[in-house]
């Protein structure tokens, strides 16, 4: 097991040390030693967000956060580099559905999941993702693309989720990604965007 001694460090240093080790070595199992509850919680969250199963242990006066790699225990490559080039245009993608195309439902869902994952290839030009009608279901608990949406948000993409639609489907309190929005925001975004892609 790879051990990281992050005692004596304050947030976010323990997370940064863990992140650096994961990126370089991608260990199957990792144990991070910290000396305060704040660092323990942060490292725990970070390991979970990277697909590790996490166990906590007390070691004397210190805390150990032990992560074991799950099926997808690697760092996603979607993290934005701070030196990312400035976007040359603003692309707004509007999804009025949680399926792509008509016909087979499960194929449609699979395509949509793949579409959302692949959108990142647009790079910094991806400016806003707007979810309306059935599209809002992509942003709620249990959605297969929730992690992707959160990663886009963390990378600076604004995700707008139609409040009227959430209310219609009684999903207002289930939304886990994006900002609840209204038609005025959506129309304004369309006006400001250089390109609007409808789905």
């Amino acid at each position: 097991m790879r051990e990281i001694d992050a005692r004596g460090l304050s947030c976010p240093a323990p997370v940064l040390h863990t992140k650096a080790t994961l990126e370089q070595e991608r260990p199957e199992a990792v144990k991070v030693l910290v000396d305060n509850a704040a660092s323990q919680q942060n490292v725990e969250r970070f390991l979970r967000s990277q697909g590790y199963e996490v166990r906590l242990a007390q070691e004397g006066v210190d805390f150990a956060v032990i992560g074991r790699s799950g099926a997808s225990g690697t760092i996603p490559e979607s993290e934005p580099a701070p030196s990312a080039p400035e976007a040359s245009q603003k692309i707004m993608v509007m999804c009025a559905t949680d399926r792509i195309g008509f016909g087979d439902e499960s194929l449609g869902l699979k395509l949509m999941v793949n579409f959302i994952r692949t959108l990142k290839e647009m790079g910094p030009e991806l400016w806003r993702l707007v979810l309306v009608n059935n599209g809002v279901k992509l942003s709620v608990a249990g959605s297969p693309v929730l992690e992707e949406l959160k990663a886009y948000e963390a990378g600076g993409v604004t995700i707008l989720v139609c409040g009227t639609c959430l209310e219609h489907f009684k999903l207002l309190d289930q939304k886990q990604a994006g900002q609840t929005t209204n038609m005025l925001d959506i129309v304004t975004a369309m006006q400001l965007a250089d390109k609007v892609i409808n789905l």
Binding site: P12, V15, A38, N42, K150, E153
Partner: peptide, 24 residues
């Protein structure tokens, strides 16, 4: 749910990027 929060905040907090001051 009504408190305005910058949209990226929850994602970063979920990744363990919470300053020590918040815990204090």
């Amino acid at each position: 749910r009504k408190v305005p929060i910058l949209p990226e905040t929850a994602a970063f907090a979920g990744m363990g990027l919470v300053p020590g001051g918040a815990f204090k």
